[in-house]
Design a protein around this nucleic acid. Structure first.
Length: 482
RNA sequence: GCACCGUUCGUCUAGGGGUUAGGACACCGCUCUUUCACAGCGGUAACACGGGUUCAAUUCCCGUACGGUGUACCA
C-alpha cells in the first residue's frame, strides 16, 4: 500500500513553528518512503476562521521547502481538500453511526451542559457527558426525539462510547497506549450548526483520503482513543498513529502558549534562512544517531525515521538556532547568498552591486555578520563611496597627530595594486611606511582602516584594500586626512 | 481533581545490565590574530527519588516526585 500522510492545519492564524515541524516530519516521512503528502484544511470551526490564514500557511510552508502532492492549492484525486466543502459527507457519516447505534441525538443547551459540569465538579467527579440524565435520544424516548427533530430543534450527534471497553492502540513513537472506556466522553460528532467536530471530520477524511499514517502533535494523544472508537464504529481499519513531542518554551510550557516569535513568518522576516530553520527544527525531537548536526533537506529525507523521534518535549533553544544559522552563512555558496541579498542592496541604493562582486564581499565578511541583511550596513564601504560618518573628535585626534598624517599620506602616495596584492607584499609595504615615519605598525593600521572604511571593525585589512582597489583606497585616504 | 504522556549536563541529544556516560549549543580559559570575528585546543557540567529483579542497574519492573498535555457544540 502506498504511504499517504497528511498535514491538517486550521486556518486560524499564522503558521506556528511547531506546526512547521509537524508538517516537516510528515514531509520527510512521506518522501523517504516515496509516499504522498496531502494538505487538508480543517475549517470546521466557523467562528475562528481568519482571512488569508490559509494562504499564509501554504506560503510559509513553501518557503521552508515543504511541498504538497495533493491539496486545495494543487489538486488531487481525493478532494475537495477543504473540510467546509465536504459538508454533506460528514452529515451522511454521522447518520450511519446513528443508524448502527454508535451515535445518538442530544438536545441539551449550552447552559444545561454548563450546569451539568458544575454539578460534577462540585461532586468531585470528572466532567463528562451524563448520558442517563441529560436530554437525549435515550432519556427522551423515540417519539419525543422524532418530534423534536421534526420541528427542527437544535441538536447535536454524540458518540456513544461503549461502557466497559478498553481501548488500546500502538503509537509508532510511544508504543502501546491503553485507556479505559469509562474515561472517554461522549464526544460531539456533529455540532448544532451542522458542521462536524474535528474528531468526526478527521476520521472520515483520513479514511476517505486513504491516509496510512497520522503523524501529529502530542496534544492529540488523549483524544486518540475516541478516534479508534470511531474507526471501530465505522468498521474501518485505523491508520498508524505517531504523536510527536511538543515544542516547549524555556519554562517547558507548550510553545504555542508563548507570545513572541513563534510564527514561521517571524523567523523569515528576521532573515533566517529556510535551510537553517528547517535543519534546526528537524533536530528538535529527532536525530539520526550520529554526531552530524547539519543536514540538507535531501539528507533529512534520506535519514528520517519515526522510530528515532524522541518521546519528551523539546525546548526551543534560540542560541542553538543562532549557531545553525551562522553555520549556513559560513557554508553556503557566496553567489547564492549574493542573489538573496541583492534586493536589499538595491533598495539601499548602492551602486557597486554586480553579483560576482557581491559574492566576493560575502566571502570576505560572512564570518563577521549575524544575518545576511547585516551586510547592507556592515559592508556599506564596499558597495558605495558614500561612507559612514566618523565622529569629529576621532577625526580631530587623528589630524592632530602630524606623524600619523604624514604616514597615511605616504601610504596613499606610494600605493600600487602590487603593494596590496597579497599579505606578504602588503606587510613589506606597510612596514616600510611605518619605519620611514618612525612609527609602529599597530599605530598605523587602525587609522588606515578608519580612513578607508570609516569603520573600526571589518575584515582583514589587506583583503579589504585589495577588493576596493588601489585607486579607491588612495582617494579615500586623501579625503580623510584633508 | 481525573486520564494520558514524559524525565541523561543549563539546552538539544547519543547510549544502554558491567562505559573514564559520548557529541553539539551555551558558558569559562588558552592559542592564533596589527581590529572584530573565524579557527584550533582545553575545561566546568547529567542518568529525578525510593524500592525491587540481578553477581551487577543510569539501563528492566513497581511506586513516588516533578513536569507537560488533555479534560469544549476549538482544532
Amino acid at each position: 500500500m502506498k504511504t499517504r500522510v497528511r498535514f491538517a492545519p486550521s486556518p486560524t492564524g499564522f503558521l506556528h513553528i511547531g506546526s512547521l515541524r509537524t508538517a516537516l516530519y510528515n514531509y520527510l516521512f512521506a518522501k523517504g518512503l516515496g509516499g504522498t503528502l496531502i494538505l487538508r484544511v480543517e475549517d470546521t470551526d466557523r467562528t475562528r476562521l481568519v482571512e488569508g490564514a490559509l494562504e499564509e500557511q501554504i506560503e510559509s510552508l513553501a518557503w521552508a521547502g515543504v511541498v504538497f502532492d495533493e491539496g486545495p492549492h494543487v489538486g488531487g484525486n481525493f478532494g475537495p481538500y477543504v473540510q467546509s466543502e465536504r459538508f454533506d459527507l460528514y452529515r451522511e457519516h454521522g447518520m450511519i453511526l446513528v443508524e448502527n447505534g454508535s451515535a445518538y441525538y442530544a438536545f441539551d443547551t449550552a447552559e444545561e451542559l454548563d450546569s451539568m459540569r458544575q454539578r460534577q465538579q462540585a461532586a468531585g467527579i470528572a466532567p463528562k457527558y451524563d448520558r442517563s440524565s441529560m436530554r437525549n435520544q435515550y432519556t427522551l424516548g423515540e417519539q419525543e426525539t422524532a418530534r423534536l427533530l421534526a420541528e427542527n430543534a437544535d441538536h447535536v450527534i454524540r458518540l456513544k462510547v461503549p461502557i466497559g471497553t478498553e481501548i488500546r492502540f500502538t503509537d509508532a513513537i510511544r508504543g502501546d497506549v491503553v485507556v479505559n472506556g469509562k474515561e472517554i466522553d461522549d464526544q460531539i460528532l456533529l455540532k448544532s450548526d451542522g458542521f462536524p467536530t474535528y474528531h468526526l471530520a478527521n476520521i472520515v477524511d483520513d479514511h476517505l483520503m486513504e491516509i496510512t499514517h497520522v503523524i501529529r502533535a502530542e496534544e492529540w494523544l488523549p483524544s486518540t482513543p475516541k478516534h479508534i472508537l470511531l474507526y471501530k464504529a465505522f468498521g474501518w481499519e485505523p491508520p498508524i498513529f505517531a504523536h510527536v513531542p511538543l515544542l516547549l518554551n524555556p519554562d517547558r510550557s507548550k510553545m504555542s502558549k508563548r507570545h513572541g516569535d513563534t510564527h514561521v513568518k517571524d523567523f523569515r522576516q528576521k532573515g533566517y534562512f529556510p535551510e537553517a530553520l528547517v535543519n534546526f527544527v528537524a533536530l528538535l525531537g529527532w536525530n539520526p544517531g550520529t554526531d552530524q548536526e547539519l543536514f540538507s533537506m535531501s539528507e533529512l529525507i534520506e535519514k528520517f525515521s519515526l522510530d528515532r523521534v524522541h518521546k519528551a518535549g523539546a525546548v526551543f533553544d534560540f542560541k542553538k538556532l543562532e549557531w545553525v544559522k551562522q553555520e549556513y552563512i559560513k557554508m553556503m555558496d557566496p553567489t547564492i547568498l549574493a542573489a538573496r541579498i541583492l534586493p536589499d542592496l538595491e533598495k539601499a541604493g548602492y551602486p557597486r552591486i554586480e553579483i560576482d562582486y557581491v559574492a566576493k564581499v560575502i566571502a570576505l565578511l560572512r564570518e563577521r555578520i549575524s544575518f545576511l541583511t547585516d551586510l547592507v550596513e556592515f559592508g556599506d564601504y564596499l558597495f558605495s563611496d558614500t561612507l559612514a560618518e566618523v565622529s569629529s573628535e576621532t577625526l580631530a585626534t587623528i589630524k592632530a597627530n602630524a606623524e600619523l598624517v604624514t604616514a597615511l599620506t605616504a601610504f596613499a602616495n606610494g600605493l600600487t595594486p602590487e603593494a596590496i596584492a597579497d599579505a606578504d607584499a602588503f606587510k613589506t609595504y606597510s612596514q616600510q611606511i611605518a619605519s620611514d615615519a618612525g612609527m609602529k605598525m599597530g599605530a598605523i593600521m587602525k587609522p588606515l582602516r578608519l580612513a578607508v572604511t570609516h569603520r573600526e571593525v571589518g575584515a582583514d585589512i589587506q583583503q579589504t584594500l585589495m577588493l576596493l582597489g588601489a585607486d579607491r583606497c588612495k582617494t579615500r585616504i586623501v579625503d580623510f586626512i584633508r
